[in-house]
């Protein structure tokens, strides 16, 4: 029982918080090339729709997810309130909607492997072998 509890502690729902400060990388579909920070920021703000002239579709995690907060802080230099306010205005001036949200890094990995042009962020430790890392800070 004690071993089970220790196992649950290490690998259960708390595991996300243990890796909250882990390196975050951007992975993309195999058709995409590496990109730079400025282009990535524009992609997630709806100001560009391609990376190196390849159509790109960004994916987000839901608000409140620790990895999303890390992504907003490290990559977009915004907090959740600022990012949400930015997209609120952008939606209601008719310039698009925010990136689609997926519930977990695992779903992002699945989307990136199957959807042409898909881009998403995941912890470095969860990146499958052979993945196309298009940006790493």
């Amino acid at each position: 029982m004690r071993k089970l509890l220790i196992t649950l502690f290490l690998f259960g729902p708390f595991s996300v918080s243990l890796h909250a400060d882990e390196a975050l990388v951007l992975i993309g579909h195999s058709t995409l090339q590496k990109t730079d920070l400025a282009t990535l920021q524009r992609l997630y703000r709806g100001r560009v729709v391609s990376l190196n002239q390849q159509a790109a579709t960004p994916f987000n995690l839901p608000p409140g997810h620790p990895l999303r907060e890390q992504f907003l802080d490290n990559i977009l230099t915004q907090n959740e309130e600022q990012y949400s306010a930015y997209w609120l205005v952008r939606r209601y001036v008719g310039k698009g909607t925010p990136p689609q949200e997926l519930s977990s890094p695992e779903e992002i990995i699945r989307a990136v492997s199957t959807i042409p042009g898909a881009v998403g962020y995941v912890p470095l430790s969860k990146v499958p072998a052979g993945s196309n890392i298009i940006f790493k800070r």
Partner: peptide, 10 residues
């Protein structure tokens, strides 16, 4: 109310 349609990235 608003409805946004996205057919593709273009």
């Amino acid at each position: 109310a608003q409805v946004d349609f996205k057919f593709n990235q273009q």
